[in-house]
Nucleic acid binder design. Sequence first.
DNA 1: TTTGTTATTGAAAACCATTATCAATAAGTA
DNA 2: TACTTATTGATAATGGTTTTCAATAACAAA
Lengths: 140, 140
Amino acid sequence: MSAELWLAQLHENGYRLTDARRAVVETVEKSNRALTPVEVYDMARKKYRALGLVTVYRTLEKLEELHLIQRVHQPMGCQAFISAGEGHQHLLLCQNCGQVAFFEGDDLDVLTKSIAKKTGYQISEHWLQLFGLCAKCRAN
Amino acid sequence: MSAELWLAQLHENGYRLTDARRAVVETVEKSNRALTPVEVYDMARKKYRALGLVTVYRTLEKLEELHLIQRVHQPMGCQAFISAGEGHQHLLLCQNCGQVAFFEGDDLDVLTKSIAKKTGYQISEHWLQLFGLCAKCRAN
DNA sequence: TTTGTTATTGAAAACCATTATCAATAAGTA
DNA sequence: TACTTATTGATAATGGTTTTCAATAACAAA
Ligand SMILES: [Mn+2]
Ligand SMILES: [Mn+2]
Ligand SMILES: [Zn+2]
Ligand SMILES: [Zn+2]
């Protein structure tokens, strides 16, 4: 996914293309770690100086609505966003630098069926997230 | 774990036993769903009318510090707390009534080793949470 | 291209959950 | 019983997020 595709998605959904949105989209789309609204603001303002923090919030809201980004929950806080993975994917986060890697192929069917039987719950969703150190941070 | 044990833990750690803390502890300990500070406040005030919201925050802070409660992350928000499970356990949440069940026995070793190999990350922790409908809510 | 409509914008104010301050109180101890 | 000081609730402060609003600019239509 490129920033252009995100902008196209916005446009297709009736949203206008503005310099503010372009700056936010380009910032968030290319990041390999989760960014908070203020972080997006600081970074995007280098591309478009007049940008307001309020617009960052509003743009993130729309990107989330279109499933182009997703909120990242972490021990330190749950206000950061990153490009959404495609299909059924989960996150692997570096506890040192915050770099995010996606992974797929987790098979929880056996587990969920067992838990469903034990608890009587009907299980329909799961959250799975791994934490560790990325290759680069492991080296240091 | 009973409320008395929680209070004993607090006492052992040098904290004084007060009516405010008793009310908060009894409320949180017996709940089978995650409660926000305001929810705790409203419920605990039925046991101890003079209770202040600030004290609820402060008591929750201490209970979390002693690992007697844990924060629960949910799509709607991440400000709620519930009794901590013992040992390595995860949560199963009812999307309708919020009832929480603990489960254990998840084995992610194969998965994490595979992901570690693929990504170069050294994986040290994981978050796993299941969502669904509890037996009662499924019936309705 | 020009015009008109209206979505979008940033500044400012409002909001609200959480945290800090502080003097009064009461838990625990001797 | 008296003393020390942790704890308390009221109040104020904080800081992140949302709302308000008039000016602007995207973009469809002429
Ligand atoms: Mn999965
Ligand atoms: Mn586990
Ligand atoms: Zn790293
Ligand atoms: Zn339920």
